[in-house]
Amino acid sequence: MLTWLARLGRAGLSFFERLGRGHLFLMQVLAGVPGLLLRPRLVIQQIYSVGVLSLVIIVVSGLFVGMVLGLQGYNTLADFGAAESLGVMVALSLVRELGPVVTALLFGGRAGSALTAEIGLMKATEQLSGMEMMAVDPLRRVIAPRFVAGVIAMPLLAAIFSAVGVIGGYFVGVGLLGVDDGAFWSQMQARVDWNKDVINGVIKSLAFGLVATWIAVYEGYDATPTAEGVSRATTRTVVHTALAVLGLDFVLTALMFGE
């Protein structure tokens, strides 16, 4: 019983220690962000590798999610004679929920894991240590640009995901199932609110981008510098990102739409 308690206590302590170190790390990275204004090239390069290279998976997933929404939504709405509202349903589901959440999950799997592995390997091969000895702070030169790039790329990817998803829903609803073209778009236009729906979705995707990128760069920087350590850190990135995004989504949704 006592050893069990001790083990629980130790696990709790190490959890909070990691949480604390993660926050200190975030503060140090944020301190390096203003300096990047002078060197935008560093950030642009990273936006390419974090954002542009994630486009294929985001576009393809968005298309299929939108198509599935079109099919499922049509079946339910048609029972109530409200098939014309398909456009609203697809757009709201995507903009409010699926766009930010699914994009963040895919982002964690595609870009987050790559960031962790890259930074972890740079640590394992002494590249970060080497930079320090060349009087170049790796937190500013390596971590900060990647962090900023992730935070910028995530909302853009989520927006693209939602847009492509709406087009997927349109293909299925209007193209295959015969929903009225004009009703699909006009109802969507009338019922999707800029502040309540679109802006809230953007806030969500920004928050997810921040958390997902933070987890990815921290796990990489904190990885045990061995092959096994880097592989564990990469797994942790994907798992923690998924959990954090889903948990945070509930909190944000409750705050935004909780009335």
């Binding site: 590249q127 080497g130 060349m134 170049v136």
Partner: peptide, 25 residues
């Protein structure tokens, strides 16, 4: 400092690696 592994930046060419400290400082 010369590290045992060399610690070269793997995403840069030999030229850019040697230029790295000059460009940074």
């Amino acid at each position: 400092m010369l590290f045992q592994s060399g610690a070269l930046l793997t995403d840069l060419t030999v030229y850019d690696n040697v230029a790295f400290p000059l460009r940074e400082h």
